[in-house]
Amino acid sequence: MNRWHAILWACLALALCPTSARADELRPAYIEMTEQSPGQWSLLWKASANSRLGQSGEIIIPDNCEIEGKSQREFAASNILTRLSLRCAGSVQGQTIGLKGLELSSTDALVRVAPMDEAMQTLRLTPDQPAAILAKPSVISNVAATYAILGIEHILMGFDHLLFVLALVLLLKGGWLIAKTVTAFTIAHSLTLVGTTLGLLSLPSRPVESVIALSIVFLAVEIVKAKPGDLRLSERFPWIVAFLFGLLHGFGFAGALAEIGLPEGDVPLALLTFNLGVEIGQLVIVAVALAALYALRQYRDRWLQPAKSVTAYGIGIIATYWFIERTFA
């Protein structure tokens, strides 16, 4: 397979793959219901202004609650924030909360309910289950499971992070070397994720997203130019390259987490489990990629290098498009 054939296949891959991805691709709706005084609740609803929910969604409040006064709506970044004041008769346990219109969307919704004298709980609504009954949960398991799933989904649905990890697998040889490199990437993005979420670090999101795209282009070029016996920088010191770029990807994860929202009383737990979810997602990507490469090597070994080149061209073209879109759009 010559280079022009590779480029042709890469262009086809570009046409078939999603061409618009952001580091904060995961943007579920968010509902926070907090008891301010006995029977008096405040409710905050956040949804993307570009989504169907943000334009026409409606909150399903518990049956024993009534809205007091008028709702307040405001724009914050690309989100619509709706604030309500509720008066509820008795406990909200056993009551239903949800979102009308969620079943027609392609996103999820996080719900955090914080009574004064009862356990706080975090629920996850989906298009298949747009409403849920409030019950007394185990707070730790509830928050942990919710944010771990969100972390897994973000690495699998955040295509720029996914392609970066995939490119690392294509570039390197040997399971142990790949494991060390991915671990370095994990440590790095964990540092900036925690630092940014806690307000210790800060970078503008737009240049960060552009450089994340460039990090993928860099790895794609390294894959194409790799030659046996002539190790390139990324092959000699892959864990250093992964660590440095991982710091930037951590800012991207932090942006996603900021969009999702964190439960005020369980920030450390939510951070930890979200990061564990990201790590689980990365391991899934690595395992699937290694299995595919092994199967190809066993079936047609001579196809392995051309397949890597074709994939690298596709990854590079997509990442270049992202870089241009994020820098100049």
Results as ranks from 00 to 15, higher is better:
D128F: 11
D128A: 15
Q129S: 14
Q129E: 13
A131L: 06
A131T: 12
A132K: 00
A132F: 00
I133W: 00
I133A: 06
I133C: 02
L134K: 00
L134P: 02
L134C: 01
L134T: 00
L134D: 01
L134G: 01
L134Y: 00
A135I: 13
K136I: 11
P137K: 01
S138M: 05
V139G: 00
V139M: 08
V139R: 09
V139D: 01
I140G: 01
I140M: 06
I140E: 06
S141F: 12
N142D: 11
N142I: 00
N142K: 04
N142R: 07
V143F: 12
V143T: 12
A144W: 11
A145F: 10
A145K: 13
A145G: 12
A145T: 14
T146P: 13
Y147F: 15
Y147A: 08
A148G: 15
A148S: 15
A148T: 15
A148K: 10
A148M: 15
A148Y: 08
I149N: 03
I149A: 09
L150E: 08
L150V: 12
L150Y: 11
L150I: 14
L150C: 10
G151D: 07
G151P: 11
G151A: 09
I152C: 13
E153T: 10
E153M: 14
H154S: 06
H154W: 04
H154A: 07
I155S: 03
I155Y: 02
I155C: 03
M157F: 15
M157Y: 14
G158P: 09
G158R: 03
F159A: 13
F159S: 09
F159H: 06
H161E: 05
H161M: 04
H161Q: 05
H161K: 05
H161R: 09
F164T: 02
L166F: 07
L166D: 01
L166Q: 00
L166Y: 01
A167E: 03
A167I: 04
L168Q: 00
L168E: 00
V169G: 06
L170W: 08
L170C: 10
L171D: 04
L171T: 05
L171V: 06
L171A: 06
L172Q: 04
L172Y: 04
K173G: 15
K173T: 15
K173P: 13
G174I: 13
G174W: 11
W176N: 15
I178A: 05
I178F: 07
I178N: 03
A179S: 14
A179L: 15
A179W: 13
K180E: 02
T181G: 10
T181H: 08
V182I: 14
V182P: 08
V182S: 04
T183V: 12
T183R: 11
A184S: 10
F185L: 04
T186H: 08
T186W: 04
I187P: 10
H189L: 11
H189Q: 08
S190F: 12
L191M: 14
L191D: 03
L191E: 06
T192W: 10
T192I: 12
L193T: 14
L193N: 11
